[in-house]
Simulated scan of single mutants.
Amino acid sequence: MAIGITLTLSPVVYQAVEKIQFVLVALIMLFVVVAIPAATTSAAWGALFSEGVGQVGFPVGQGGLGIALLLGALAFAGAGGANNLVQSNYIRDKGMGMGMHMPRIVSPITGHEEARPSLGYVFPTDDENMRRWRGWWRVANWEQFLAFFLVGVLSLIILSVLAYSTLGVGRVQEQDLAFLRLEGQVLQDVVAPWFGTAFWVAATVALFSTNLGIIDYTCRLIADQFKINALRDSRVWTESRIYVAFVWLMIAVGSLILLAGLDQPFALVVIASSIAGVQMFIYSGLLIMLNRRALPAQLRISGVRLAVLALSFAFFGFLSVLLVLDNLGGG
């Protein structure tokens, strides 16, 4: 409900999401920084380098790790297919460059909807525009590297070392949220009561920020596709109104699942993450096709980037096919 109210009442949705995520990520990083001297040990940091690589080989079948779980884990490790599909939507709403030519998603209640088409804009590839494009592309690359890759890798490493320092490996049976509860209790005993509580707050903030982003980008993708296809000529159903309608539909359906007592959170996560993995397969293929057929030659990716996309397409396609065969076989 808090996520729905936030997204519905934000005058410009992207600006509100960006500010909220910045604050939430800052809180998480504050905890991570404090955790290094307060709760990690030198032995754990040494084990990171001596034991961190683990067993060599494809991990399917080891410790109950199946195709669906592996596909979902790999998809969830990154932004996921749906999030990648709406990156251009975020760029548009950020108001940078090309985004200035497109209407933004706003609140139908507090925002001002713009009567402009949502079907895209291609700028002329003259010298001045290409200079601006290269400047934007450089900034976008650094932003992704610092905010997504570097912060993500460092926080994952530190949290893993924190768990190793306090709980070790193979010593506990708790899983899912029960593991988070146990970790917080151990931190309260080992470090201080306030630190265990801070761990739970950071975990809650992380889960909230993730769900805020998931609802936002999923509804952006749905609204975009409805507006440029089924509701293209509708004056009543603007992209912003479609977006808000699906925000509350997702919240209603999710609440009904919880109220119905469907006590299978792990199964639901595997289903959702597996779908994200299949989306990565489709998304990679669509992005290759877009670059080779639709974009001007000056804007197309090539070389290493194109090779990585092709590898992603083949890898996620391979896992997606294995997932289907695994389910058809009842495995």
Rank of each mutant, 00 (worst) to 15 (best):
G285Y: 05
I105C: 06
S320F: 03
V190S: 09
A314D: 02
V122S: 13
S10M: 13
Y283D: 14
Y90F: 11
L256I: 13
P11Y: 00
Q173K: 07
S165W: 04
G97I: 03
F318P: 04
A68F: 05
A297F: 08
G95F: 02
I105V: 15
S160T: 13
L187C: 07
A115C: 04
N291P: 03
I282G: 06
L268T: 01
K94P: 12
M250Q: 03
A192I: 08
A163E: 11
Y283L: 15
L306W: 01
S107L: 12
A39T: 05
T204R: 02
L30V: 14
W142A: 10
A267R: 08
R131E: 10
M29Y: 10
A82L: 07
I271P: 04
F149G: 02
W45Y: 05
T110S: 09
A73P: 02
W142C: 02
F199V: 05
M98S: 11
L48Y: 14
K227W: 02
Q144K: 04
A77R: 07
V205G: 09
V308Y: 07
V247T: 14
N89P: 00
V244T: 15
L295D: 07
L119Q: 15
T197V: 15
V247E: 08
R300P: 00
D263V: 07
V201I: 14
W45L: 02
L258D: 10
L156Q: 00
V270Q: 11
V236W: 13
R232F: 01
S302N: 14
V324Q: 05
G254Q: 03
G135I: 00
F315Q: 03
L154C: 12
A178T: 05
I228T: 15
D93T: 02
G78F: 03
V253M: 03
R138M: 14
Q144M: 11
A44V: 07
E239R: 14
A43N: 01
P193R: 11
R305L: 15
G80W: 02
G329R: 01
G317W: 03
V321K: 03
V270F: 00
Y90G: 13
I222D: 10
A260T: 12
K94Y: 07
V32W: 03
D126R: 00
F315Y: 04
L150K: 03
G81V: 06
S273C: 10
N83H: 05
N291T: 09
S10Q: 10
A192Y: 07
L290G: 00
S107E: 09
G120L: 02
I242G: 08
Q279T: 07
Y283G: 14
G64P: 04
V34T: 13
L268Y: 02
V151K: 01
Q185A: 13
G329P: 01
L258S: 11
Q144F: 09
G97T: 06
L182F: 04
S284K: 05
R232V: 11
Q15W: 06
R181A: 15
V253A: 12
G285W: 06
L207I: 15
A38P: 01
D189K: 12
N229Q: 08
M280I: 08
S312D: 06
V278G: 06
S155P: 05
A147K: 02
D233C: 00
S160M: 00
V201L: 07
L150C: 06
C219R: 00
M280D: 01
F315P: 00
S155L: 12
R132A: 13
T197L: 11
V205Y: 04
L9I: 13
S118Q: 08
L322C: 05
D126T: 03
F123Y: 13
